[in-house]
Computed example of a mutant assay.
Amino acid sequence: MTTVLTPPSQPPPQSSAALPPTPPPMGADVPRPGPGEHRPPARPGLALAGAALCVLAAVLLGFAANLTVVGHLKHARDQQTSFDELRKQLALGTAPVGQRTFDGKTLGMGAPVALLRIPSLGLREVVAEGTTSGVLMSGPGHRRDTALPGQEGTSVIMGRQWGYGSPFNSLGKLTPGTPIEVTTGQGKAVYEVLGVRRPGDKLPAPLAQGRGRLTLMTASGPPYTPAGVLRVDAALTTPIQPSPPRPLRSGWISPAEEALGGDNGAWLAVFLWSQGLLLAALLTVWLHRTWGTWQTWIAAGPVLTALGVAVSGAATRILPNLL
């Protein structure tokens, strides 16, 4: 009797579609899904976190730019524009000599009123009307409720210590007897430095009738962290110029024009620019998922940077005006 051996049964072959995909080797590039292909589900929490990081980075970068490179460029541009305008007015005889223009209108905030020169410091700055934080971004400002330089009484000019051109950064180096020149629509007035006053120092003697004094003010303390107000007092050595009537009497200015005051009116601009920055950040996160990393940052990077500079520029107006 012959025994027939049958081979063991083999499992039916499986199709390649039923096999699990082979994982790529470690370190290999995983291709990104193209447009229209399946993508992992969106995570709103990660999207909001990414947008928040974009906003934070843009604002911090904007602050650094505004208080350094961009701020100095803005100061230089505004100074050149103001110098051209003041020189034109001096040539035409229409430069302001009081709180009103030559045709009787109230002098606007930021209008150029004088040219300040301190040869020992190499300083030449156009002085604008007003001392708000926004005005002092363009250069020194004249306190509106004081006399113009060259006239009877005390004239006060404020300027920033470090930000936006840092025009008054070296005031503390002035020594008694140093000349200060100020040119207005009434001519050139020359002052002689009496001394430098820091917080706690003795006040100067009251000003006698028929005399003039100039007080330059800036912040004291470390960079961008004002601790007080530094003042330089100088006595007028040239003849007194006539003083037109001043509708704005001493003390009739807003808190934003006081030393180390901030401009609370800038909050609206901060809010509006922040809304634009937030929308741009959310759009950037969405583009990153649908477009790609490099394409997104090439297109969105300049927009986020510009909006960050705009937000921080508006927010800088809220900070102390002398920093």
Rank of each mutant, 00 (worst) to 15 (best):
T132C: 08
L116P: 05
R143F: 08
K88L: 12
G134R: 13
R144K: 15
G159E: 02
D84L: 12
A91P: 01
G108C: 08
V127H: 03
G159F: 02
P119F: 02
G98I: 01
A114E: 08
G139A: 01
G159V: 03
S120T: 13
G110W: 09
T106W: 10
D145R: 10
S133H: 12
G163D: 15
R100P: 00
D145K: 11
D145A: 13
S133G: 13
L121I: 02
P112A: 02
Y164A: 08
L123S: 05
L136F: 04
G134N: 10
F83E: 15
E129H: 07
G104A: 06
G153C: 12
L86E: 03
G153R: 09
W162Q: 11
A147R: 12
M158G: 07
G159K: 00
H142S: 11
T81V: 14
W162K: 07
P140K: 07
G130A: 08
K88S: 14
T101G: 09
G163F: 10
L115C: 07
P119E: 12
G159R: 01
A95C: 06
P149E: 10
A95H: 06
G98E: 01
L107M: 06
V97G: 07
D84T: 13
T94F: 06
Q80S: 13
G110N: 09
L107W: 05
W162E: 11
V97L: 10
E129C: 02
M158W: 11
T131C: 15
G139L: 00
K88F: 08
L90W: 13
L90T: 04
V97F: 02
S82G: 04
L148Q: 08
Y164S: 12
G153M: 06
R117W: 00
R117P: 00
R160T: 15
I157S: 10
V97N: 06
P149S: 11
T94V: 09
K88E: 13
G108A: 15
H142R: 12
V135R: 11
L90S: 09
E152A: 15
G150K: 01
L148F: 15
D84S: 10
P140Q: 06
T101R: 10
V135K: 07
L123H: 01
Q161H: 15
S133P: 05
D84Q: 12
G159A: 04
Q161F: 14
R143L: 14
R117F: 00
P119Q: 07
S133R: 05
Q89L: 13
S133T: 12
L92M: 08
T132L: 08
G153K: 09
A111I: 01
W162M: 12
V97K: 14
T132K: 13
G108Q: 15
E125L: 00
L116C: 05
R144H: 11
G130W: 03
T131K: 14
Q99F: 12
R117C: 01
L148S: 05
T81H: 11
G130R: 04
T106M: 09
V127M: 05
T101K: 06
G159H: 03
R160A: 14
